[in-house]
Write a protein that binds this DNA or RNA. Structure first.
Lengths: 348, 348
DNA sequence: CTGAAAGCGCTTACAG
DNA sequence: CTGAAAGCGCTTACAG
């Protein structure tokens, strides 16, 4: 009823949001006190506390995020930077899941996720300015390990905000902290399984071998099965898709007709291998054993269902967020490698 | 050299970012002048302008986004709300593309995208508080038209920030402005094509019929082909996937052995239909014509390639952003229906 | 326990 | 053309 009323300046139709000032007036206290009941620290006498809460309810007050950020020097938001085009990344259903899990986990701590592309040079320029602009408190980098990501990594290293990388560890040294599933252990387990089953002529179908993740899987597997595979039995598919897997298998079959097993570095590829086997008149696993990697949704849907390596994508997402928030809080940042699980189904 | 130096309070290791104050001092002008050269309005004498720019370069100054937002009462960011779980939405590759396009288009205007889940009740509570908190200037709702989205729509309607809905128009009235491809025209065109080709026993494979989009496609198509289809020749697949399409086709074949054509409401489903046809020993299109919808990447990769309806996903994304930014600027908001194109390949 | 005041880092009339 | 000052809406020592 005092000041600030009757104000009818232009204002593009936006009714003035209720502010802390309003709540304070309603409750008959100072802004400081309203602030104190909001963020719970410092003691406030129960009676005034209730009065303030009641005033907040009546006015439907929600604190302005921007003002809060400015005062507290934190944005309560983190950037999710994609190291590859979304269209490519989300071909792998595990990445959609990861996105979902990260969003949910951040929501639990009332953090927002700002989605950013980082694949192209122009994206990186924007990102650099964005980070300097103080838009976010931390960064999660989602990459499938493609080599162009190196530049992104250098950029992220050269700035002060905490960063957490999702995906495959770095071949040489650890430029940034990461969370990843244990690809080596997974490939070794799968290799042992192949050996145990007595397969002796083993093909390998990979894709994007320039990416650290795929390379690691292949090399760990190949080392494990030793002489049971040969260099020319490795075929690189165009992409991580069913069709690419099918095509690669046909190529592989032309090179070596009598393989008894194939390891594909992703489930989508493996599904394509099974399709190709059908076309070639080969029974899976009797004539040709097939294994994939990821245990994504498709693994359970092929006929026969796929033997594969399960990564706990949920755990990766949660750790990614947990570690990042800890780091934002000032804690030492740590890299984490999560265990994987060999899932034996009927295909191998 | 004057005030503000020697300040060594706790401060968790964060070196103080350079502020407008610093630039002003460097350039020997006031903060106001620095601000004026930054946002280009108002005249500044070229000489002082250059001095300021030089000072900005020397100090590597980038304006703090939060302070800017508070002063200007705008956040330069918009929320992308997903009406369905990311894992489900991104099964359709068109949605990854849409996400990419929206991000890019916003980047051109220096807006950020805040990614939010809106599928579950808890998400909606957060969203409501988020919007009241003034985190964003506008909202884009991505939905595949599932009915649970109604609540989300009510929520979005009852708040003052501009909203733009991607996807299918609303069956009754237009509660919110939207951008969508012309599903009706697409289905009609495809129906006519089937009629022209002389198909007389036409099956339909749909999915998620509770969603407006799918329903619209089916009904427009069915109306167009008239007596050439029958109610029991409509099968609903579990989801928009290759395997679900294959399974649905097998079901359909059991119900009616002598169909000569099938329309599937998405390319993924149609791809599955082709696979099933192979298993049933049917040649496509000689024994069974098959058409899809979306012209997503898979349409060109099937054997034979799919006849389908192309939606310009890029245009949808760009219009979505364009209209939203206009609305944020105060302009009248408009719904937009974008033309589609019948793409005739070999499958039908 | 609580109020008054200063501060977060910008923008923007208002004078000059 | 440019400076000084007030303001954006919060938080947080500092007194009391």
């Amino acid at each position: 009823m005092v000041a600030g009323e009757g104000d009818t300046r232009a204002g593009a139709g936006a009714e003035p949001r209720t502010t802390m000032e309003d709540v304070a007036r309603e409750a008959g206290v100072s802004k400081g006190t309203v602030s104190r009941v909001m963020n719970g620290r410092n003691w406030v006498k129960p009676a005034t506390r209730d009065a303030v809460l009641e005033a907040m309810r009546r006015t439907g007050f929600v604190a302005n995020a921007t003002a809060r950020s400015l005062a507290m020097r934190r944005t309560d938001s983190v950037a999710l930077v994609l190291g590859a085009p979304a269209t490519r990344l989300f071909e792998n259903p595990n990445y959609s899941l990861l996105l979902q899990v990260i969003t949910d986990e951040l929501a639990l701590s009332d953090y927002s996720l700002i989605f950013m592309s980082g694949a192209r040079p122009a994206d990186r320029d924007r990102l650099a300015r964005f980070l300097r602009g103080g838009h976010v408190d931390g960064v999660i980098l989602l990459s499938a390990g493609e080599p162009e990501v190196d530049e992104l990594i250098r950029l992220l290293q050269s700035q002060p905000i905490p960063v957490m990388v999702s995906g495959h560890p770095f071949p040489d040294g650890d430029p940034l902290p990461f969370v990843a599933a244990d690809d080596v252990a997974g490939s070794v387990a799968l290799g042992r399984h192949f050996v145990d089953r007595g397969y002796r002529r083993i093909g390998v179908i990979a894709s994007h071998l320039e990416a650290a993740g795929a390379r690691i899987r292949v090399s760990a597997f190949v080392e494990t099965v030793g002489a049971r595979t040969e260099p020319q039995w490795l075929v690189e598919a165009d992409e991580f898709s069913h069709d690419a897997g099918r095509a690669a298998m046909l190529t592989l079959h032309r090179r070596a007709e009598d393989l008894d097993a194939v390891f594909a570095v992703s489930d989508a590829l493996a599904a394509g291998v099974i399709t190709a086997a059908g076309q070639l008149g080969l029974q899976v696993p009797a004539d040709l054993a097939v294994a994939g990697f990821d245990d994504s949704v498709i693994a359970g849907r092929t006929t026969p269902p796929l033997t594969t390596v399960r990564q706990d994508v949920g755990a990766v997402g949660r750790e990614l967020v947990r570690q990042l928030l800890l780091a934002i809080g000032g804690a030492e940042i740590r890299s984490i490698v999560l265990p994987v699980e060999l899932v034996i189904r009927d295909s191998a």
